[in-house]
Design a protein around this nucleic acid. Structure first.
Lengths: 244, 244
DNA sequence: CTTGCAGGATTGTTCAACAATCTCTTAGCA
DNA sequence: TGCTAAGAGATTGTTGAACAATCCTGCAAG
């Protein structure tokens, strides 16, 4: 194995580089047919092409996706464990229909995890490097730009990414995975709600405000702000949901 | 459908009975070959018969479990998403080897979830029915009995169940699922630790103490106690892990 | 000591077939 | 009319065999 630099000092940055390469390799390698099929289905579901309650026929999808039934079923399993599909034995797979109870459940978990991450920054990363916040800023600006272009679905996507990146500050692989699931399920809810603008617009500014607090390292303030933010969002979705 | 009793009064107990029957039916129905194979493998892994790092050969297991390769691979997928197996593309499935970083990660999540559940009881269930605590008491007593019989693996199992039931107090399907995963992963760690007695013994009494606090509805106290409990446990496991 | 190259073994994927189960329709009956 | 039962058709669950793609091992060459 070659060693472009061998002073003990740079060992840490070398470790970091190795990790990024390993991540790249993993991303390229992951292209099994099942996962590619899952990618396509995932997009169809989160974009609303497959609405909640829809049944996914095996024979039909094998033709469309050009994979065998076995491979398709593996893709189904993948999405099942992301919460984007549910299996009913001997009946097939369906896009879940979430109800108000699920909204409450999802938001409860979001609050617990996200607030803890932000609050925990005070202890764990009192001197959080500015670079760690960059992805968050990108998401904030992406949402603002999308709003100007009236692309409200894109605003929702940017908002999701903002929260995923927020959780990413915790450096916890399991929190990242859980959040991915939670947000994916949340997207299921958005499609039964008529007004995307009213739903997403208020949170553009709030994301910006939250980012500012993080940048100023006012973590305690940010945490209480985020708590209220999520509760407001929950209430809004519940209201929109009831009047659908 | 027959109605053994039809007075309006017993309607609630009848509902409860219907739920238990439905649960039984679901448990029997869920017996797809893949899930049955997964059950067997899950036990083998959590009981340590398949140690961390072990590779699971497809052809070998198809013979042992008497299922086809495709069905076996579905079982693999199930366990992969529980964190009990990892896929390496074109190389096979392996029992994960967790390291100290994983211990920290797992305990961080346990702390966040469990402490929040207990603390949340004050608001959500100020008058928690005693019946809801029964499963916890059963687990406490099971651990105490197993300890007297020197069955330390059983103590560990009862301890796991205690914490699972604790999370169950939140009535959150997603918290239950997450906790199931977290505890399953935790079991992976126990098998690389030599002394099960030293590991589990201190927590028998602490579970009892925690139960007493819950029964007395001293939720705030219980929460801080639980926080310290989990931190102590984390430290103990890390220490045992480093000196393995 | 490293590099390159068989070959054998293992995983990834497909296909066709059959078994098990569900759903829907229809027939029978009060 | 309304309910129950039976059966046909469709869909899912599972299997086994086959082939392709990839990985691992050992050996030979530099």
């Amino acid at each position: 194995m070659m060693r472009p630099m061998s002073t003990g000092e740079v060992d840490e940055s070398r470790q970091a580089w190795l990790r990024t390469v390993a991540a790249d390799v993993a991303r390229l390698d992951r292209s099994s047919s099942a996962e590619r099929a899952a990618d396509i289905l995932r997009r169809s579901i989160t974009e609303g092409a497959l609405p909640p309650g829809a049944q996914l026929s095996e024979v039909e999808l094998t033709e469309v996706l050009e994979v065998s039934r076995n491979t398709l079923r593996e893709a189904f399993r993948l999405l099942t464990h992301e919460g984007l599909l549910i299996y009913k034995l001997h009946r097939g797979v369906f896009v879940p229909e979430l109800d108000e109870h699920d909204v409450v459940d999802l938001y409860r978990l979001r609050r617990v995890l996200e607030v803890d991450v932000v609050r925990g920054l005070a202890d764990r990363e009192p001197e959080l490097p500015a670079a760690r916040l960059e992805p968050l800023l990108d998401d904030v600006e992406a949402a603002e730009a999308a709003a100007l272009a009236d692309r409200w679905a894109a605003v929702g996507t940017a908002n999701m990414r903002f929260h995923q990146h927020l959780i990413g500050l915790a450096d916890s692989a399991r929190m990242d995975a859980m959040t991915g699931r939670l947000l994916a399920e949340l997207r299921l809810l958005f499609h039964v709600i008529a007004a995307p603008r009213e739903l997403h617009e208020p949170y553009i500014a709030r994301n910006r405000a939250l980012f500012d607090l993080l940048e100023a390292r006012k973590y305690a303030e940010a945490a209480t702000d985020l708590h209220q933010y999520l509760t407001d969002s929950e209430v809004a979705i519940l209201a929109a949901f009831r009047s659908r």
